[in-house]
Design a protein around this nucleic acid. Sequence first.
DNA 1: TTGTAAGCGTTATCAG
DNA 2: CTGATAACGCTTACAA
Lengths: 334, 334
Amino acid sequence: MPNIKDIARAAGVSPASVSRVINNGPKVGRETRERIKQVMRDMGYSPNANAQAINDQNNTSIGIVLADLVDPFFSAMAHGIEQVATLKNVQIFMNSGAFERETELRAIETLLEHRYKAMVIHSSALEDNVLIGFARKVPGLVLINRYIDEIAERCVWLDDAMGGQLMADYICSQGHSAIAIIDAPNNLSNSTNRLSGALTFLKQRQLSPPIQLIEHAEATYEGGRVAVQNLLASGIPFSAILAHNDAMAIGAISMLDAQGINVPDDVSVIGFDDLMLARCIKPKLTTINNPIEEMAIKATELALANSQQHTGNQPRMAAFKPELVIRQSVKGLR
Amino acid sequence: MPNIKDIARAAGVSPASVSRVINNGPKVGRETRERIKQVMRDMGYSPNANAQAINDQNNTSIGIVLADLVDPFFSAMAHGIEQVATLKNVQIFMNSGAFERETELRAIETLLEHRYKAMVIHSSALEDNVLIGFARKVPGLVLINRYIDEIAERCVWLDDAMGGQLMADYICSQGHSAIAIIDAPNNLSNSTNRLSGALTFLKQRQLSPPIQLIEHAEATYEGGRVAVQNLLASGIPFSAILAHNDAMAIGAISMLDAQGINVPDDVSVIGFDDLMLARCIKPKLTTINNPIEEMAIKATELALANSQQHTGNQPRMAAFKPELVIRQSVKGLR
DNA sequence: TTGTAAGCGTTATCAG
DNA sequence: CTGATAACGCTTACAA
């Protein structure tokens, strides 16, 4: 694989001129430029990005850490990021953190080592102060789907408590009072916020569910199935389920269905996120819209803007609002 | 951000010693090593990966090009790749090609410029000879979901023709004879192979569908809906649909449903890929299992193996076989 | 317009 | 065990 000197030699010019051509620099004669270009093509030259990046800041890429690439939730994020990146002609380098502290840490450190100036990070397992440390170090680092007070202007997040409240409010308004909750493992800040939003609302209505009707399980389709099994096993009757996300809701529905329990006739279910999936299943899922893609777009724009030292940007709060989407999985009780 | 010299100075040693510590090199005194480590921590040192990569081949990362991150099909691929990468302690750098020639080209070139020694590429738009060129240049480059004869040992693909045949065979065995096909745009090699596999089989049975019952549309949920609309508009009756993939099949079902046509009672539908989605919808989708994740695992292992110059590896053919998965969306005709 | 030469941060070779 | 010093491939003043 030839380097810049090889090209220079072959074209009978200095490396400097070749460099100028590579970067579309101005000070090269018309015909020299053409000759150099020709030689580069002939020899299959490809500039070494590592060598280029050693000097100046690499502003042509953005580094990403997401938890998981299979989960449609993160796919939606990736998609939002991608749109902005394509628009601004920026390459995406992506790592996954798999919800594990060490992996997340390693992923961010790798990004740091590559000196990415812009980063969009989803971290569920790292402690606030660790993230604050990274944020202070890298001006173009933005946290998505997480809120940390000290670096609020670097966060893009959803008002989860409001989402939880929305679910509870709606389900109550439909006349339900025996309400079960299937939640994610409670180490996720999202989930605690959603849960507390819902519980606060229910408490005000004197409708707090008994502890047996609050199940924690993995935030997946399978987790939803397991949670419903446990709920049923408890023997305590319920007419509605508030799920932590659509995946759990859909798992829940499938398990209820398998047990001969009809949704929404026997039990109502409400999801969270409003993924594409929610529209595809039967009954169509009533859920809370989570504008993930928009958040991702916002986060990417913010990261890119902050990464150019222009410093003149006014940080605005980037809290997004969830919205209720009524479909078919909740039935009104008379 | 401090560099190796700063650390050396602060620790009162030479850069060489710091470098040895960074790389867990052997020839450093016990207490010197500790002192250096301490200084690195104190000063928040992070080695510059670009500078490291300038010399030697970067064997700690693998470069990936996929078409799209939202499509569950590619998510599954990403997941397979991720598993191997995690296992072998390799970082993933991922780009997307968006099914467009120029974007795919740019994505691969970027990987090349970063001198990744291992690459897993999904390319649907680039010409064979372009890919062959890249493959010759990078020994650790593997093509996934595509077959090119000249570099067969660098390809990991599905026997699509067999998949098409499987669909046709099954649908015939269930007594269907008025068969419609909804296919992807015909520039995709997958789709032509699937289609021709199905058509060949049907022709043998004298069951070739009329041209009006072969619809091309985008290989998405929406595309499936559009295709069904066109099919219905043609006025030609059909009792079964062979879809190019699960997304189209599910779109098709939703449109049929909207038109008051029941699946499978009025029309049978068979998908392709066997994504998670296929199990979540009602009726559960009868489909062709596409071992995407396994293919991705294989491709990644191959890329990683080929990227180490050990050269002693025997390339084996990596054609995967599709399998019929019978669920609920096809009904036998009496 | 073109070339020379000094970096950029790291690793590797070779002395000590 | 430790330290100079020369690469690595490229960019960029500064000269010419």
